[in-house]
Amino acid sequence: MIRKLLGATLALGLTTLPALAEYPEKEIQGIIQWGAGGSTDTVMRAVTPHAEKALGGTIVMQNVTGGVGAIALNQVANGDADGYQILFGAENPLLYKVMALGDKDYSDFTPINILARGIPILVARPDAPFNTYPEMIAYINAHPKDVKFGSTGPGGLPSVVTAMINQKTPIDVTFVPYDGDGPALTALQGGAIDVMPAVLGAAVEGIKGGTMKTIALFDTEASSALPDAPTIVSTNPEFGDLLPWGPFFGVFVKKGTPDDIVAKLTAAYAEGAKAEDFLALMDGRGFKMMNISGDEAQAFLAKWQSTTAWLVQDAGLTKASPADFGIPKP
């Protein structure tokens, strides 16, 4: 910091421009779509210092929140495609069009790295009168509307998981809305709701500590963070065709950014995502590392959008049909 201060005082006295250097010749602005302390924020702040080292530049991180991330996305999309603005985002933008939250999504961006994917898990308060997924369904059918499910608004992970459940095993429960899975899991521990579809990372410490219990892991294989948690396909194999599915974290730049800059950033984040302490963090929080880029990332985004948009469309949660935006049916 002292060096920076010294630099600043000198800068005010300087009049001539330094010769143009190679990218990055100045600080890069990194825009995080979600608030400080959230999982996107934590993941991005953990990987970026490693990527900075590989890149040889500085990335200044800022949280630009609001509109389920749409404000941050639009800010980067309306900036210059010069590689000096990076978007750190989650899965939400792929549903903006169908949720009528904006006319831009990741198709206006070039993916630098899809870092990791979260695993959905269905948890219940410890004294809930059921322990497994079939028991839960049986209880709900015997007591319609009595069981309270937490939700986080249409388009969020809980709504997608609920859409999956309703497609395979229709249920009649009361949905209590929360503004994120953190507050909802807090409410679960206080008994305000009974069941919550959440991301594994947010629930793992609570499960270990006995303040909530696992009903089912919504993935095709067990997780190393919670090896004892039963997968949904072990009791209800019909879910197999919808999985694996999960929210993800990605690094993006605006479409049209010069190829050499994209290549440099891609290499930097691919390197950063291999750092040991980052891998340990992701594993501990129950995220599945992906670390993919280029065409592979594009294909992943397209598939994710098609699956999810149609799933929420069939659940009647959308404001516009995915077909209107040329999103193919899976």
């Binding site: 934590t42 702040r45 953990a46 793992v204 410490e205 609570g206 270990k208 500590g209 006995g210 303040t211 302490d277 340990a280 963090l281 501990g284 929080r285």
Partner: peptide, 11 residues
């Protein structure tokens, strides 16, 4: 979390 601790009921 970033520093490798696991805040939660077990901390």
């Amino acid at each position: 979390f970033i520093h490798g601790l696991h805040p939660g009921p077990m901390l």
